[in-house]
Write a protein that binds this DNA or RNA. Structure first.
Length: 269
DNA sequence: CCCGAGGCCTGCGGGC
DNA sequence: TGCCCGCAGGCCTCGG
């Protein structure tokens, strides 16, 4: 579910509320997530939260003995609340902190993960990730270079975390609309002007979605329970059959690799 | 090596 | 009302 902007929204909120607090207790109601809840996390008891980082869609919490790696899968949610807040049946993990606040992990489908590592620079899950889309080493030249002599369609390629980290189905669709590129185009076929336009669109869209605290479709809520505000900015995602905001032609939907792709057949070429 | 389908889960909405 | 099907912000694993 949550893509880079939603995870970044969580990162900022956790940093604001919980950085420097000590982890008093860990409660696990259901350890059977995508992989079993990492038992090493119990060793972090009585340690201070030192850093809150993000890599792609992974949230990284640093303690002196190591890191908690959180991935939210499709339906994972984080909330920061007081003890009095009633528990939901899909609440699976709670971190109880010294300022009497609880970080609570809720995940209806349990595709998410709570893992552990000593060194985030030496962990297989993160090693294989491509560049951060908002960093300087992600740009149109990079996209141009790695797309030569490859013949996969651009849209599923953008969702491959080895190419660029953090882009999922919503933002892949939106970025291609902004750069006016047909999602079915084969990547080798894009010229440098187009890959530059695409990289710039990716940065634009992600930054603006972060500013609006993400997109709420079904499950995503901010740590205070408020929805994200990027929904009104969506140009194509979930708009099949509705008129394109530029040319009024109906937005088309088709599956690519089992995922819905939305685009304007008139504007995107 | 590369690619795509399958599968992990739960819940919702639409058609009959 | 109920059942069945398709659909949903992801991504690892495995087969060809």
């Amino acid at each position: 579910m949550p893509e880079l902007p939603e995870v970044e929204t969580y990162r900022r909120s956790i940093e604001f509320h919980l950085l420097g607090e000590t982890l008093l207790d860990i409660r696990v109601y259901n350890p059977s997530l995508r992989w079993p809840f990492a038992l090493e996390i119990y060793n972090l008891k009585n340690q201070m939260l030192l850093k809150v980082k993000r890599r792609g869609k992974y949230l990284l919490l640093a303690f002196s003995k190591g890191w908690i790696i959180i991935h939210l899968g499709m339906s994972g949610n984080l909330r920061i609340s007081n003890q009095s807040f009633p528990k939901d049946k899909h609440d699976h993990v709670e971190l109880i902190m010294t300022n009497s606040k609880i970080l609570r992990y809720n995940d209806q489908r349990r595709f998410g993960a709570w893992l552990w590592c000593i060194d985030i620079n030496k962990t297989p899950l993160l090693d294989s990730l491509g560049p951060e889309p908002l960093s300087n080493n992600f740009n149109g030249n990079y996209l141009f270079k790695i797309s030569r002599r490859k013949y996969t369609p651009i849209k599923p390629w953008l969702m491959d975390s080895k190419i660029v980290a953090g882009i999922g189905n919503i933002y892949a669709n939106e970025c291609l609309f902004m750069s006016r590129i047909d999602p079915n185009r084969l990547i080798d076929n894009l010229n440098l002007v187009e890959t530059i336009k695409l990289a710039d669109s990716i940065k634009d869209i992600l930054l603006s979605a972060i500013e609006k605290h993400g997109t709420t479709l079904q499950n995503f809520l901010q740590t205070d329970g408020m929805p994200g505000n990027f929904n009104n900015s969506l140009q194509v995602y979930k708009r099949d059959g509705k008129p394109c905001y530029i040319c009024q032609q109906p937005i088309k939907r088709e599956k690519q690799r089992q995922r819905s792709t939305y685009w304007c057949t008139n504007c995107q070429i």
